[in-house]
């Protein structure tokens, strides 16, 4: 059990039902979601588009009221202004006041936290430096590229030196260099002891960055835990072998151990069901006097896990059994 003082974000049975259209049709965006984010960790909030990630983050930020359930930040009730002073938020594909220059923009947000004068000036310079935007400090935001907007957006989220930084899809729409920079920024935040909660559907980034992840589908939590634990759990542990000149008899012996065999002239790719089969397979190859070209244990990726979970939850239960 994590002591409650170490919990930065906590939701219990959080639900949100939207009413859409003329007849007020009910659409469940978030369904009984219980989550905990601990102090100092990088927490990834994953799910396909429309899974309810943004809705959940908006509830935490006080932009949307939940239909039922509770959410707490820093052990304070939702809507407590004290929580908001310790928080930084970057919305998804942010649009900002494009008539402002980046300097004016950051100063404006500083004012909302009661920062003025020289203190604010120093803070703004620091942040522009941090996100690499010092060269564009007097340029209007309307002239910015998406990557530049994302950077001042992150600077905006850090203006109050928050303990918790919440980023909604911080990598979406960025080029590889931009993504790398955002990744480095998140790691930098973690190093300086901040808690980072971010949503994403770019799984590779989550795998590299996160201490823990939660995967949600149709508003429900389907998995939550340390990335390594999730990858171990139910991962295939398949092993790929590439073999040259294996005799047909040798192949017959090998078949029961494999999932898949692909022939390419003299060479064949053999996929073993699990690591336990490796010894047996090597013995067969030696006896058949074939030569082993390579042996690759297949590491499960978060992407495989994610796709498995999503597919599992989409197909009807009778087909899954």
């Amino acid at each position: 059990m994590t002591p409650s003082s170490d919990l930065v974000v906590q939701t219990e049975q959080l639900s949100k039902i939207f009413r859409v259209g003329f007849w007020g049709k009910r659409v469940t965006a978030v369904d009984g979601l219980s989550l905990e984010v601990r102090r100092g960790e990088v927490f990834g909030f994953l799910g396909p588009n429309g899974a309810g990630k943004t809705t959940t983050l908006k509830i935490l930020m006080g932009l949307i009221y939940p239909t039922s359930g509770t959410a707490r930040l820093f052990n304070l009730d939702m809507g407590d202004p004290r929580a908001k002073t310790r928080l930084g938020f970057l919305p998804e594909s942010p649009y900002f006041y494009d008539y402002l220059t980046s300097r004016e923009f950051l100063c404006f947000y500083g004012h909302l936290f009661g920062l003025w004068g020289a203190v604010l000036g120093r803070r703004v310079d620091e942040l522009l430096e941090l996100v690499g935007m010092t060269h564009a400090k007097d340029l209007q935001l309307s002239k910015f590229s998406k990557g530049m907007l994302q950077r001042v957006g992150i600077a905006q989220a850090l203006i109050n030196d928050p303990e918790l930084v919440v980023l909604d899809e911080p990598m979406s729409g960025l080029d590889p260099i931009g993504r790398k920079e955002v990744r480095d920024l998140i790691l930098g935040l973690k190093e300086s002891g901040k808690t980072v909660l971010f949503s994403s559907h770019i799984l590779h980034d989550a795998e590299v960055l996160c201490d823990r992840v939660a995967i949600i589908l149709k508003g429900r939590l389907v998995a939550c835990g340390r990335v390594t634990d999730l990858l171990d759990q139910g991962a295939s542990h398949q092993v790929e072998l590439v073999v040259d000149r294996l005799t047909p008899e040798g192949l017959d012996h090998l078949r029961p151990l494999t999932d898949k065999v692909v022939m390419q002239g003299d060479r064949m790719l053999v996929v073993l069901k699990s690591q336990q089969q490796v010894e047996g397979a090597l013995e067969i190859i030696r006896t058949a006097k074939a030569s082993l070209v390579s042996l690759n244990p297949q590491k499960g990726s978060l992407e495989d896990f994610f796709i498995r979970e999503v597919k599992g939850h989409r197909s009807p239960p009778e087909k899954r059994a």
């Binding site: 930020m61 006080g62 932009l63 002073t85 938020f89 909302l112």
Partner: peptide, 14 residues
Amino acid sequence: EKKTIYTIVSKPVA
């Protein structure tokens, strides 16, 4: 519409 309000309401502004 432009979602600029998201960054304001998430700050300590009633």
